[in-house]
Design a protein around this nucleic acid. Sequence first.
DNA 1: ACTGGGACTGAATCACAATTCAGTTATAAG
DNA 2: CTTATAACTGAATTGTGATTCAGTCCCAGT
Lengths: 197, 197
Amino acid sequence: MRQKSGDKDKRIAAAAIRVFARDGFHGAKITRIAREAGVATGSVYLYFKNKESILHHLFDALWKELHAAFDEVAHRRDLTAHEKVEEIIDRIFDQFGRDPSLALLFVNEQHQLLRQESGRFMQYYVDFLQLGERVVREGMRSGEFRSDIDARMFTNLVFGAARQLLHQWARAPRQFPLPTVRRQIKSVFLHGLLASR
Amino acid sequence: MRQKSGDKDKRIAAAAIRVFARDGFHGAKITRIAREAGVATGSVYLYFKNKESILHHLFDALWKELHAAFDEVAHRRDLTAHEKVEEIIDRIFDQFGRDPSLALLFVNEQHQLLRQESGRFMQYYVDFLQLGERVVREGMRSGEFRSDIDARMFTNLVFGAARQLLHQWARAPRQFPLPTVRRQIKSVFLHGLLASR
DNA sequence: ACTGGGACTGAATCACAATTCAGTTATAAG
DNA sequence: CTTATAACTGAATTGTGATTCAGTCCCAGT
């Protein structure tokens, strides 16, 4: 009997990232994904239950990696809270910086999943925010951070800001070079906009 | 001959905000919008060319108001750059704070429009960002702001952060009371997270 | 008090694209 | 070399929901 060719699932997933990023989940046609992956339309359904499950597969992999990265940082003993905040920001950009399509996908289609039933993706999201919150609290206890900041809101600020700049970078990488973006985010969030008093 | 009943267009638009916000643009059914507006399905097409044009109508109104508000703030002579930044943040929240559905709509469906042809919405967006940029530069010239910050990126940071907190607020107003949110955003962006040296 | 024409209705039409499946092809096992 | 079975194909099927339109309903003008 015949063997599955081995990398079709990878090729389909990779094509889906590009097509979802370009056309949006709803604008993306399965036939287009299949064509870009170099397989027949029907073959997509040998590897994925349906269109939505492709999206799930992609986000699942994405969040798993993010989660692992964050978790590792949060538990490091050798970093101050300040350094952890910087490291977490770096990890976000490490994750998406390799592929603008991946960044666009994440930035534009995440809300589809939050609307969804299962709550699986909601969980990743909540976990991430809680983890950020924990790091900020840690910094407050140690006196590194101002204690009049709401840790949950701060984490959301960083997440939202990173999301926005990732989006801009993905649309025009030259206008928003990633090294500069990282530097600016850290600098603004840690020191603020005002000239030092 | 008969007169148009007068407020059907308003009722349809208002219903559309709720339905788009709840179900997303693609998940929203015209029949549902009509039902919530208390009109027949077909009537929607007497007031709007098609589903997409409803979205356009809503965003057009939204951006026009935002644009007017920002423009006014940017040209005020009686405010320092610092105060302008705070005022712009306030205007964003004034605009959306009255209606969580409006906030969700803006936050979740904006990207549909940026993908679109005409560039009409892109223009609003770009204008807003340039305006923010201008205010930041102004503050740098006057010495109020640090001059090692990239003005364009800073504006994006604020926009992205505001978007995220608006989203969280719309999903759970109690968890993210708007007055606190405003205060935190301003405080973090102006002074940063670190305890003062 | 009639009537012409626009407002309004909602069931029927229609377009589109996700999904299926009957047929074809490749290859592992004997 | 055969054959059985699973991989693979892409045209046909199908479900869904946006849009249309044939008919009603109202009322401004006469």
